[in-house]
Design a binder for these strands. Structure first.
Lengths: 190, 190
DNA sequence: ACCTGAACACCGTTCAAGT
DNA sequence: ACCTGAACACCGTTCAAGT
């Protein structure tokens, strides 16, 4: 509905509302973290000072909202991939990238959910396509150099990473690194 | 509430109702599979021919019901561990066990969710304790023999296995084996 | 001791009315 | 073109009344 419409073409109040909704969503997710499904859309609309209908006009589904709420983090993470890949061998780049994901998720658990949406839906959010390509390139380069096993694509990696969303918060610092370590080790080629 | 009460001590209608509820839950889960959260408890009560209150009397939470619905499968899987461990070296036993999980989950996706509940809640369902012990023994034996890396416990393995619950149904046959393969490889000691 | 189902609470989603 | 909020639908959960 709103797709393809530039900010200038939109009414000023619409732009403003959209921003306030996202801000409210971010705040709500920060409190409730680890359970993005538990986030109350009505309350977000209320906290943003808009009607429920306005929220739905801007974000037709909860996933759209969550994706947008973590857009900055997603962009950061996606952009980090090529940079790491230039400075390190593929497997090491992957390890460092996942360490960064764990770091982001430590305080904002929802990033994992945001990353996972690439699997859930076919919502072609730009960041998801970019993540898929970035990870895909990393894996390809890794298999070529022989560091990373063949037959695994970006979706598989995202699926495995999804295991992190189940880690209980109080055990995060202990378990998240172990989980990631097993994944990276498993992706390595012996 | 019902804990510790033998079948003989319970009223006949209660035993009967409980069985019908579980049967209805199994049927509902078979249809809806892959999304145990999407299962409608009211409809299950209705299909079982009991009031909602009766369902809650027997199963205080959705997790209790799901756990019970997959009890047979869980028992099978748990019992398989020691047997496999006797016939194979630890890592191979783990690989075979996970292949069995994938096999069970192919038609009854909910088993993964049932296995995962061990992490979600502190509901001390017997099967979960037994799974924890069985996997724990397998891992310990594997680290002793040097086949499996140290520093990973049963909960970590269950968390990793949870990645399977995100695999989209149409891609199950292609992706599930890959995911499991990465996990097993990651748990191996080089 | 156990069952029933109306009733309550909550929340996602829609839509008629408004500016 | 966009916003509002009442209204609808749905579903988990409880509880007074019953047997």
């Amino acid at each position: 509905l709103v797709a393809g419409v530039s900010d200038r073409a939109r009414r000023a109040d619409a732009v403003d509302n959209r921003e306030r909704i996202v801000a409210a969503a971010r705040a709500a997710l920060a409190d409730f973290d680890g359970a993005p499904g538990a986030v109350n859309l009505r309350l977000i609309a209320q906290a943003a000072g808009v009607g429920q209908g306005t929220l739905y006009r801007h974000f037709p589904s909860r996933e759209h909202l969550i994706t947008e709420a973590y857009r900055t983090e997603m962009t950061d993470l996606v952009d980090a991939v090529p940079a790491l890949l230039e400075a390190h061998p593929p497997l090491e780049a992957l390890r460092l990238w996942m360490a960064r994901v764990v770091d982001y998720a430590r305080v904002k658990r929802g990033v994992i959910a945001a990353i996972e949406t690439s699997t859930w839906q076919h919502l072609h959010a730009t960041e998801h396509l970019r993540l898929d390509r970035a990870l895909g390139a990393l894996l390809e380069q890794g298999t070529r150099s022989g560091d990373i096993r063949a037959g695994v694509d970006a979706t598989d990696v995202v699926l495995l990473l999804g295991a992190l969303s189940r880690v209980p918060t109080p055990e995060w610092d202990r378990r998240a690194p172990v989980v990631v370590d097993v994944i990276v080790n498993g992706l390595s080629n012996r």
